[in-house]
Structures are given as structure tokens and as C-alpha cells.
Design a protein around this nucleic acid. Structure first.
Lengths: 139, 139
DNA sequence: ATAAATGCAAAACCTTTGCACGCCT
DNA sequence: AGGCGTGCAAAGGTTTTGCATTTAT
């Protein structure tokens, strides 16, 4: 947990229990939670924390590149502590979001930069499908 | 314009001036407009049309696969009359959204399907960067 | 001590919904 | 004639904001 506090300090963010809790939660989940689910999951340990604080904290972490905001096409955003650009696979049944940590896009990226003459800075790739466990349930 | 009416009929949607206007506008722009900008761009020709109708129409067109909804990471959705899955390039300065109509992802898609065991049904790929004209302005 | 973060409530924003009216087929 | 589409207004949900209080450095 200490490292997280250091990271926050390095980014000139004050270290508060709320920030640590949110950041810690995000670093230790593979769920890609929304602000609402972060709030709910911390409710028992931080009963006085408000949803506004969750949003403000996520915004602060986002600005210093400690978390990234995902827009998988739902009503609300999801958050990911891994800021390295990576594709995601989303199950259209159970809404699980999985990371793909490969850099499979590098050649595609180059080709696009070349044809569009854009100076590319980032990308978001979402694959939608049915995960193995939902596939087996369906049958 | 006639073809558009035919398309609507084929999908069992009643042909109304509002629907034609919205569909026609979407088919003849490369702007990937939001509901709001569709509404504004039709204001002069259809002064009585309500924003709710725009949303309802887009929803109807979406359901019969005549338009697709894009979530490029802004507050609101954008709409595209091309329903074939294709990547987009978005300029982070002028917010222009360009289509990439290649199928550059096919090999990547296969690799992901193999490693995750997902049954993939669709994907969204957004590249973010600076477009040629914004690049030249910056200098 | 100072500046920043929190928590609450209210506001803002986009989108959806309910319902009466009108139009298309 | 019947049903679907429209328009208005209100509601819904997510996110942001203002402000007084508390907290971190």
C-alpha cells in the first residue's frame, strides 16, 4: 500500500484515506469498475465517503495518468489502473471486461499513421463477444 | 432520396419526413454528428421537430442496423450511417472523426479469438491523434 | 498556516419516457 | 380506422459544481 502513497505524492496529490482506498481498489481488481461500483465496494470501509469524492478522485488520478477511463459503450464510464494502452474484450452477456496486454496493434497503427497522416497518440480497441463461460451456459 | 424511403420500408419503419431528414443527413455527412448536432442542422428545415424525435429515430434506425452509435469518449454519442464495422481516427484537437474502411483487424481479431476463447461478434477501434491540418496550425 | 480535499446538496447534462395529438398507410 | 410517429414536458441516470468544513503538508 505504501507504494501507492508514494505514487500519489510523486504526482503532487495529497495522500488521503479516500484516495488511497480508491486507488488501491482499482489496482487490485480486474473488474474495470464504474464510479458507482467503486463507491459501493468501499461503502463498508469508508461509510462517510461521498460519490462526488469518488468522481473527483478518479478525475485527479486520470489527469496525472494513474488511471484511465474506459468507454465500453455502457451508460457510465469504467476505470482501469493500468494506463498502458491495451485492448479490451467485453462479454456482451455478463459484461465482464478483460484486458488484452499484448501490443498486437503496432503494425496496424503504423499503417494507419501512414495513410491518414495523423500523428497518433493513443487508441482504444474494444472487442465484443461471448466469453467462454457464457458460451457454455447458452448451450 | 427515394432509396432511403425504400430502405425504411424494407425495415418496416414508417416513412416520415423527420425520419427521412435524419437518415438523409446521416448518409450525406462525414461528420459523425451527435443527436444534438443532427437536431440543430435540421432546425431550419424542420423547425417543429423535437430532440426527442431525433433520439427516437436514431434508436429505431439503430435497431434495424441502418445506423450505428459511436462512443468516441465524449459526453454524448455520435452516429454513423455506415453500419459495416470499421475503425475511426479522431483528432484530439478539432474532434474530427474519420472513417477507416479497411479491414486491417482481421488477423488481430483471429489471434484474440484464439487466445481468449471468446466468440467475437464485433469490435470498436478508435485511434486518437492530431490530424494533418491541426498539425500544421500548431507549428 | 495554507492550500487542498471532502461531503453534501443542487445543478447540469444527455437521454429516455409518458401521454395526447396528428399523420401515414 | 387503426396504429404508429411526433412533440412536449417531465423524469431518469450519470457526472459536475459550489460551498462550508475538515484534513494534509
Amino acid at each position: 500500500m505504501k507504494e501507492l502513497a508514494e505514487l500519489l505524492k510523486m504526482k503532487n496529490l495529497k495522500v488521503t484515506p479516500q484516495r488511497l482506498a480508491i486507488f488501491h481498489m482499482l489496482c487490485n481488481t480486474t473488474e474495470h469498475p464504474s464510479a458507482e461500483s467503486i463507491y459501493k465496494s468501499l461503502e463498508s470501509l469508508h461509510p462517510t465517503m461521498s460519490l462526488a469524492t469518488v468522481y473527483k478522485t478518479l478525475d485527479a488520478l486520470k489527469k496525472v495518468d494513474l488511471v484511465q477511463e474506459l468507454n465500453v459503450g455502457e451508460d457510465s464510464f469504467r476505470y482501469d489502473a493500468k494506463i498502458h494502452c491495451h485492448p479490451h474484450v467485453i462479454c456482451i452477456h455478463c459484461h465482464e471486461v478483460q484486458d488484452l496486454d499484448t501490443d498486437i496493434l503496432s503494425d496496424v497503427r503504423e499503417r494507419i499513421a501512414h495513410t491518414t497522416e495523423f500523428e497518433l497518440v493513443s487508441e482504444k480497441l474494444y472487442f465484443y463477444g461471448i466469453c467462454p463461460s457464457c458460451k457454455s451456459i447458452e448451450k
